[in-house]
Design a binder for these strands. Structure first.
Lengths: 222, 222
DNA sequence: TGCACTTTGTGAACGAGGGAACAAACCGAG
DNA sequence: CTCGGTTTGTTCCCTCGTTCACAAAGTGCA
């Protein structure tokens, strides 16, 4: 059951478990039960145990999980025991925030270059890195073996940036621009869509407050 | 089939359809087929049609959908025909980016206040709004009828900010801090987790490049 | 009007994910 | 060694979501 394929939903939760384990480790806890870890991760314990069972049997019945050991196993499974060089394209407001975000530079990920097509931004130093020209992308990818690219450019430029990234050999893209990206097979794109998230909240909020205003009782059969 | 409950997966895609329709409208297209719209939204046409069928029958067989009409219907369904006042708490790098992000201020959402507990940040003007003290949250929420809050504060402060928001009457929260938030029933939280997204990409990237390096053939039975 | 053609809306099969419940395994006391 | 208590790993079942395939409904032309 260990090295077969891990369900996508489980993969998406592994980073959450990892963060919860780090927090437990910081608080000095050596072992934890599935109940404890599940509470810290915001899921129920049955789901947690099933998720972990996809990686292997890393717990001890009657005892629980060794925090440090489990943390390492999850990190290894995700691939954080190796170093991932990352390139960020588009150093506007969002690009600045991402470059300075500690979660990006720490723990397995290393920002090796900040790029922008706007010459007025080039040369500026952000988070210890000088902003370089977008045309240098291919050279940088080759030099550092970059596999992951982050697009923080405006929507109008996103597809062009994406195409260049793919041409340069990048096969995993994190896209912050509000645009659907077309990529060839074998390239993964994950999008972080700020306005979509807000709109989803608005939908539910409308239904919450609308329950006492809009009756929706049009079912009155004659 | 129109006004019953809409599946969560469909709700999550409605903003994508809305954006695709806006793009079509900008390019001057008056009608579109499900195939066209699906391509623009990055889904297959069967899924698109089923999603739209949950809202009602807004298309014409043999013809397609009227872009402007469908756009309005989706916007109404999401709740974007009304105005949603929003408060952003935590005006660091990310808060700056969010405040300036056009997708937040336009189209139904209006940022009414930027708050920060750090006195050194207060008074600064960002995106036309002066940064105010976090303690003013409750007054602002009452005054503007704010239902949606955005947390861009550091992880260590996120839960405290969340609690204050809930106490002030906010029932929908968009959380950018890397921390699981505990909220009472009736409050919705959506999280945008930058480092999780990167880690998920890393996982898949590892499997892609690992296929020719790590054999994973430990199945050799004795 | 009648017919060929296009496109939507939906029914049904299929697959993935979630939750409850339980057997298997481990610990520690006596 | 045995037994009670605890916690994991797994099985079963149900719900939700996706995809296929097709009938229903419209258009335009002869």
């Amino acid at each position: 059951m260990s090295s077969s394929r891990i369900p996508e939903a489980t993969v998406a939760r592994l980073p959450v478990y990892l963060r919860a384990l780090n927090a437990l480790l910081d608080s000095g806890q050596a072992t934890c039960s599935s109940e404890e870890l599940a509470a810290a991760a915001g899921v129920n314990s049955a789901k947690l145990r099933k998720d972990l069972s996809h990686l292997g049997s890393y717990g001890t019945r009657g005892v629980g999980y060794d925090v440090e050991y489990l943390r390492y196993q999850i990190a290894r499974e995700i691939g954080l025991t190796q170093d991932w060089p990352v390139v960020i394209v588009g150093i506007g407001n969002l690009g600045h925030a991402l470059a300075n975000y500690s979660g990006f530079s720490s723990r397995g990920f290393r920002t090796v270059a900040l790029l922008d097509a706007d010459t007025s931004r080039q040369g500026e130093v952000v988070a210890g890195l000088k902003v370089r020209d977008f045309d240098e992308l291919e050279a940088i990818v080759s030099e550092h073996g970059v596999a992951i690219g982050v697009i923080a450019a405006p929507a109008s430029a996103a597809q062009a940036v994406c195409d260049k990234m793919v041409a340069a050999g990048i096969r995993s893209i994190l896209n912050f621009a509000p645009r659907i990206l077309a990529v060839p097979p074998g390239v993964d794109v994950r999008k972080v869509d700020l306005s979509s998230e807000l709109q989803i909240l608005a939908y539910h909020e409308q239904r919450k407050s609308g329950a006492d205003r809009v009756p929706t009782t049009e079912v009155g059969a004659s």
